[in-house]
């Protein structure tokens, strides 16, 4: 555990909590892509199957359970509890265009051809593109509430910090997880345009993000 990894995990947790509380407190999921949230729930489900097969640490187990519970709770808020506020007309990204290639790739390029390992690989690949429905929705509507942009900022920052963690681990322990690193770079690239808008617009005091 190094500082980049810890800050990355904290950033990830902060992002998920921001989104959950935003929906819970405002009793509305307006502007939020339910499809992205279902994909993230799928990411955690397929990645954390090792909760049943291997124990790494109390920290690891607790974080996995928290991520799983919060991701499903968020999906519940969007599709059941506050369904009337869900903007399905703007959430039109075709997720099968992500799921099919990602599933195919996880069978082709993995560390071990076993169900649990293929599902882990699937989760890594899927995570790198899971935010696309949300970004697509913002592009389509041309705006996002600032609280939504804070969520996206911390979610993007998390994987960027993991990149620093992987550089650190490579130099200190020779650790190199090619699948995670390549996917992590791809994932972070998707956020770059957003990071630019976040810094130049939201942090300059605009109440919401409007696209030029």
């Amino acid at each position: 555990m190094n500082v980049f990894r810890l800050l990355g995990d904290v950033s990830h947790l902060v992002a998920i909590i921001i989104l959950f509380l935003k929906i819970f407190r405002s009793k509305s999921c307006a502007g939020i892509s339910g499809k992205s949230q279902v994909l993230f729930a799928l990411v955690f489900t397929t990645r954390y199957l090792d909760l049943f097969t291997s124990f790494i640490s109390i920290y690891n187990t607790v974080m996995k359970v928290v991520f799983l519970v919060l991701s499903y709770a968020t999906v519940y808020l969007i599709y059941l509890r506050f369904r009337s506020s869900y903007d399905s007309e703007s959430d039109t990204f075709r997720v099968e265009f992500l799921l099919v290639p990602v599933a195919g790739l996880s069978f082709l390029e993995n560390y071990d051809f076993t169900p649990i390992e293929i599902l882990w690989t699937f989760s890594i690949y899927l995570e790198s593109v899971a935010i696309l429905p949300q970004l697509f929705m913002i592009t389509k509507t041309g705006e996002a509430e600032s609280i939504t942009t804070h969520y996206l900022f911390f979610l993007g920052l998390y994987r960027a910090l993991y990149l620093a963690n992987w550089v650190w681990r490579y130099h200190t322990e020779g650790f190199f997880d090619q699948i995670a690193v390549v996917s992590g770079v791809v994932q972070t690239i998707f956020y770059c345009d957003f990071f630019y808008l976040y810094v130049t617009k939201v942090l300059k005091g605009n109440s919401k993000l409007t696209l030029p």
Binding site: N60, T114, E117
Partner: peptide, 10 residues
């Protein structure tokens, strides 16, 4: 596979 790959990251 005789040995499972260890993923210690989240």
């Amino acid at each position: 596979a005789d040995e499972s790959v260890d993923h210690d990251e989240l």
